[in-house]
Design a protein around this nucleic acid. Structure first.
Lengths: 341, 341
DNA sequence: GGAAACCGAGAAAGCGTTTTCTCAGTGCGA
DNA sequence: TCGCACTGAGAAAACGCTTTCTCGGTTTCC
């Protein structure tokens, strides 16, 4: 480079010239270094104010080797859960003077590692949100991302270094939903499953199988579903054929789609069939009937992810490397007594 | 600075050393400059690959004076409309190799200009999404943000320079909803208004008043509301007291809250009262009854915002500085014939 | 065959900061 | 009075890259 642009933004040099001091001194004043004569400091501040000087963050970034920015990569920005996490993370980070750069992998798992790497190079750290990539790939990638925190995913490394993360206890949540249904007399349940590659789907499934094994009068059928409205809506026929009295949907979205489909088909909820969701997204309480679901404080998940990241960045001892959130069952109108058959 | 860190990331110098060439040559090769001997270029590429060299973006940013990043400031990340815009923007920008930095002003209008300024300094441009700040403040701020695009807001400047923007024709949308209701025989309508400082709320209100003036058999009552579920839910009593047969809610969220509140109060929709929303958020079609609303392709709004920004960044002639979206009425179950009174 | 045009690659300046290094100037004790 | 520790501020190196400038070595063209 080297083109002398007259139109360039006003920089530290202009302030220094105006105040009749060196660049170093301006920098010292701007950064609250008190080894500067108060009179000079005042002069510098005046000059800066008069010129409306605003330090160029990119120059600082290079000199300081940090950006005060973290990256987050999510599988799909259209998913309310990720939106909630993003929001919680963004607000919490902002309170500490950090910004967040987003990357949406569009559910393409092969993009995740590229996006994460790019984000990491531009930012001081990365949070990987429910990555869809395989466990081995994740384990291999993790070290290169170092200030890294995971959301809804852990690395099954046994060799000491644990990656901070925030996780939701999906297993326990779904067990409690199943127990709730059992109390209502339901014995033939269906699990409307989520995305194939979702780790949290596996967690739910495992927990249900375990639950089933513990209660031999309960049967659970697994129905292919997904994480969206449409997936739930499209599963209506499969659900009706399954001959069950209650359905545990992967999440609220799918549950709502199902609710809607059942309504169209003339199936009454909860009289004919009970339905549960998962997440307690804001809309869940406003469906008709209101959705029984396992509430997870999604904004807190994002906020805690930030706290983990902050600890990493500060090098302070991590509070607790992994924050586990226990969902609480919110009983609403979509679940009722099992129909007498 | 000046600390020789052995642990520093591998940089262009390492590659140059390994390939036995100068830094300049490595840079040329990495940037596809073809004035390099193919043999040397190959050697450089090999060295880079072997060292897994990844250029440090911050260094590039400083040298190039650009970051390939744009900032977006939104009033509230919890609002589905802004989420949709963010998503559309982010995906479109990503296709062109740009990233987005988010800033959530938490509906605090005084924060907007600060956040926007900070974002601008870190990024190549800023998109201001439905800013709540006053028109005068916005007009004053705009020049300093220069590559700036507005969403759902325009600057009433008469002096030539128009700020690119994407806007939704809220006035027309709400008129069409009113017309739809009128066709169904409704004459006493209510507008459940939105946030005080929202410019788009004013647009709706003006359009309704105009509509009212054109049709002197139609009456429109204005009821204080808001933009959230809760606002709609809490407005039930006021709505019932208003003695109207139909309610035009500010947006889908408020409409859904209202729907829910009416249901609890035993008021039938649409038999007793019709309700319309605005936006057609993904949930609108799954309420009971499904919500009649004015559909706006919110992801496209974000995408077009990016296109405006891209034109600004490239210096290419802007396609059309302002992209106007015409909502289309989606008639669903929440509106029906006016009750015979 | 010699000079002009050309070509490829290295040296170095620059992007806008921060921070180390250095050094004049001051104050204090011996 | 001299020297020494100390203070405060400027000069300059560094952060990691890009790009201009420069220059030795070829080629081209009369």
């Amino acid at each position: 480079m080297g083109r002398r642009a007259a139109s360039t933004r006003i920089g530290i040099a202009d302030v220094a010239a105006k105040a009749g001091v060196s660049l170093a001194t301006v920098s010292r004043v701007m950064n609250g270094n008190f080894t500067v004569d108060p009179a000079i400091a005042e002069r510098v501040r005046a000059a800066a104010a008069e010129l409306k000087y605003q330090p160029n963050p990119i120059g600082r970034n290079l000199a300081l080797g940090k950006t005060d920015t973290i990256g987050i990569v999510v599988p799909d920005l259209a998913n309310p859960s990720f939106q909630g996490i993003l929001r919680g993370l963004s607000r919490a980070a902002a309170r500490d003077g950090y910004r967040v750069l987003i990357a949406d992998s569009s559910e393409i798992s092969s993009e995740e590692s590229i996006l994460a790497g790019e984000a990491r190079r531009r930012c001081d750290g990365v949070v990987l949100c429910a990555p869809r990539m395989g466990a081995d790939e994740l384990a291999e990638l993790a070290p290169s991302l170092h200030p890294l925190v995971l959301v809804n995913r852990t690395i099954p490394t046994g060799d000491g270094a644990v990656i901070p993360s925030t996780v939701v206890d999906y297993g326990r949540g779904i067990r409690e939903l199943a127990a709730h249904l059992m109390e209502l007399g339901h014995r033939r349940l269906a699990f409307l499953s989520g995305p194939e590659r979702s780790a949290s789907n596996a967690l739910r499934l495992d927990a249900l199988n375990e639950y089933c094994a513990e209660h031999d009068d309960v049967q659970i059928a697994v129905i292919a579903g997904g994480s969206s409205f449409e997936a739930g809506h499209d599963a209506v026929d499969r659900v009706r054929e399954a001959d069950v009295t209650a359905v545990l949907a992967f999440n609220d979205l799918a549950a709502m789609g199902l609710l809607s489909g059942l309504h169209e088909a003339g199936v009454r909820v909860p009289e004919d069939i009970s339905v549960t969701g998962f997440d307690d997204i804001p809309f869940a309480r406003y469906t008709t009937p209101p959705l029984t679901t396992a509430a997870v404080p999604i904004n807190d998940v994002g906020e805690q992810a930030w706290h983990r990241m902050r600890d990493l960045l500060n090098g302070t001892a991590p509070t607790a490397p992994v924050a586990k959130f226990e969902p609480s069952v919110a009983v609403r109108g979509s679940t009722g007594l099992a129909p007498v058959s």
